[in-house]
Simulated assay, not measured.
Amino acid sequence: MANLTETNSFQSSLSLKHQNLQRKAQRFAEEVLMPYESQCEENDGLDQASLYVINQDVLNWELNAINHAKEDGGQGLTIFEQMLINEQLGKVTNAIWDTVFQPAYPLRLATEQQKKEYVIPTNQGLRRDAYAITEEQAGSDPSQCITRADRVDGGFRINGEKWFVTVGDAADYLLVHAHVDGDPSQATVFFVDKDTEGVKVKRTPLYTHHFAYEHPEFIFEDVLVDEMKILGNVGEGYDLTKDWFVEARLGIAARCVGAATRALESANDFAAERQQFGKSIRNFQAIEFKLADMTVAIMAAKSMLYRVCSDISESYDRKANHARAAALKLYCSEMAGNVCDQAVQILGGRGYMRENAVERLWRDVRVDRIWEGTSEIQRTIIGGQIKKRGLGIYVG
């Protein structure tokens, strides 16, 4: 596979530390994860033996919990450094990048007891979390959640249902967004172990992609948890969920740039080798212009990605970070969808074959315009920020 990173004459704009981190992530993606792509595609997932081997490799390469502090068992990387890694992981199809576990950002606010029970083991690859927010009637608007946590002696009783719980099949505990006593202003996040009585898997739907993990639907029937299972405080759930969205959206944006880059590399290589009418098809203007447009789109997205992640690494402005992450997720996800679609077109019939990475990338990135906030929701956030803060937050 062609390597844009090593041939980039502007590589020196990154510090030596960041260049080394980027190369490490690239090697891990290519040497460790990509060999599992065919297995994951053919079997609609990875078997437990493969997941175990990858988990050990993640630990050995020190890529576990890159978004958490070293004292909690993570790698303590900045937002910018996390982005460098996620960009390379995004080149891997079938979401096998998710085996490089990055426990939810809000876990940083766990108590010392919660860190011992949940956070540190999760960062060390001994446990796995999954964030449970979406419901049948509540997706883009979490305030519409009807999952409730009613106060009882000694704690809370949780009742409700959650959809699209990504990694819910592999996780052994869930971070459940629920409304205390049914009050949306009392949104709260709870630790809920999957083996707790009353936690049930309703069903595991099939999706367009063949991902390494699944997205089950969960039912909570009179699930009892004590007050020690609250993450943060009662009423902070919405802010914690927004923080999680920011981190998730930044990760999606980075992986979209990586996915688009691999698709462009594949299309460029194919166009150079494919001969029609006595010459390489890259010499036909119809193909040449596609490659040019794809390249410029990635250039723009990557510039935006690096700038915003660098800024957020230095910023503690929660609202500004939320606003910029929305713009980044919107632009990069839509760019990746278009680039991957054009790559399929350039490869023609071969681009429609699942054995080729561009076909899998084309399917994989479609969800990036939907999950963790649709493109329409990102535009709503951006429009709202312009009304409140003016254009400067984006173009200043």
Rank of each mutant, 00 (worst) to 15 (best):
M1K: 12
M1Q: 10
S13K: 15
L14I: 09
K17H: 12
K17M: 07
L21G: 01
K24V: 08
A25C: 06
F28N: 08
F28Y: 13
L33I: 06
Y36N: 13
E37S: 14
G45C: 10
D47L: 03
A49S: 15
V58E: 04
L59G: 00
E62T: 09
E62V: 04
E62N: 10
H68I: 01
A69D: 13
K70W: 07
G73W: 12
G74Q: 12
Q75S: 04
Q75P: 01
L77E: 12
M83T: 14
K91T: 13
I96H: 02
D98E: 15
T99C: 08
V100C: 08
F101G: 00
Q102S: 04
Q114I: 00
Q114D: 04
I120C: 00
I120P: 00
T122C: 10
N123W: 01
N123I: 00
Q124G: 01
L126T: 01
R127E: 02
D129M: 03
Y131F: 13
T134V: 07
E135D: 10
E136K: 13
A149G: 07
V152M: 11
G155M: 03
I158M: 05
V165I: 11
D169L: 09
L174F: 13
A178N: 03
Q186P: 00
A187Q: 15
V189M: 09
K200P: 00
V201T: 15
P205T: 09
L206C: 03
Y207I: 03
T208H: 05
H215K: 11
P216H: 12
E221T: 09
E221D: 15
D222Q: 12
L224E: 06
K229C: 00
G237C: 01
L240Q: 15
K242W: 05
F245E: 14
A248I: 04
A253H: 10
A253G: 11
A253R: 10
V257W: 06
F270V: 03
Q276K: 05
F277T: 12
I281Q: 14
I287A: 11
K290H: 11
A292P: 01
A297D: 14
A301C: 11
K302P: 00
Y306E: 14
C309E: 15
S313H: 03
S313F: 04
E314F: 01
D317M: 10
R318N: 14
N321I: 10
H322E: 14
A323S: 11
A327T: 12
L328D: 10
A336M: 10
N338H: 06
V339P: 03
C340I: 05
Q342Y: 15
Q342L: 15
Q342W: 14
V344T: 13
I346A: 02
G351I: 06
E355P: 00
N356K: 09
A357G: 01
L361G: 06
L361N: 07
V365Y: 08
V367R: 03
E376N: 14
I377H: 15
Q378R: 09
R379V: 07
T380M: 05
K387F: 06
G396V: 08
